[in-house]
Design a protein around this nucleic acid. Structure first.
Length: 199
DNA sequence: AAACCAGGCAACCGCTCTCTG
DNA sequence: GCAGAGAGCGGTTGCCTGGTT
């Protein structure tokens, strides 16, 4: 490949946040010419961006059918079900959520769901330490804690392996832990829906 | 009021897959 | 069947914003 050509192109390529002008150029170009080969589209439109960058911007942000705003409980439920089934196949999951992008779902998962799982795992460690310390004096209470912990661990473990899991027995938050506000009502509602769906 | 921190999200990077010649 | 180019995907990063101290 001609290095000089590469270098001269590299100098031109813009990175970072998109400006309103760039958005408008891309929208107008696609409105007039449709989607095509992204690299040539970027050049033809006069954008100093890579085709990859244009594609990402269009698919994740500018497309008219992209839905913005909060993920609904129903969507949360669906995401969790599909993730249990397919693992981190975000684009596959996104196909079942009209208007949602794989990037959005991925971000949602990482920021919301994984946080809950991590916290639950910490609770698990804490509760098992406590129950060890108390030497299983209160068998019924520790059983409740353990069943949650097991479910979360089962979920996390299977999640890492991208395998199926039985969500029907998962996420019964009993409020036996020090911080009862870890899951919001919205989360609990989602969990309940999830259990109903699997029973 | 200022500094710090954590969460959320847009965008980039690198790898893999698919298509075409 | 092979190589190169482009598209697609998942992981990661960095910035912005709102909340807390």
């Amino acid at each position: 490949m001609d290095k000089r050509t590469c270098d001269s192109q590299d100098v031109e390529v813009r990175k970072g946040p998109w400006t309103m002008e760039e958005d408008l150029i891309l929208i107008n170009y696609i409105a007039n010419h449709g989607e095509g080969v992204w690299n040539s589209l970027a050049r033809s439109a006069g954008l100093k961006r890579t085709g990859k960058s244009c594609r990402l911007r269009w698919l994740n942000y500018l497309r008219p059918d992209v839905r913005r705003g909060n993920i609904t409980p129903e969507e949360q439920l669906l995401i969790m079900e599909l993730h249990a089934k397919w693992g981190n196949r975000w684009s596959k999951i996104a196909k079942h959520l009209p208007g949602r992008t794989d990037n959005e779902i991925k971000n949602f998962w990482r920021t919301r769901i994984q946080k809950h799982i991590k916290q639950a795992e910490n609770m698990n460690r804490l509760s098992s330490n406590i129950s060890e310390h108390n030497n299983i004096q209160q068998a019924s209470t520790s059983q409740t804690s353990t069943s949650l912990a097991d479910s979360i661990e089962t979920y996390s473990g299977n999640n890492n392996n991208n395998n199926n899991i039985n969500m029907g027995t998962t996420f019964h938050h009993q409020g036996n832990f020090p911080n009862e506000n870890i899951w919001s009502m919205e989360d609990l509602w989602s969990m309940q829906l999830l259990n109903d769906a699997n029973n």
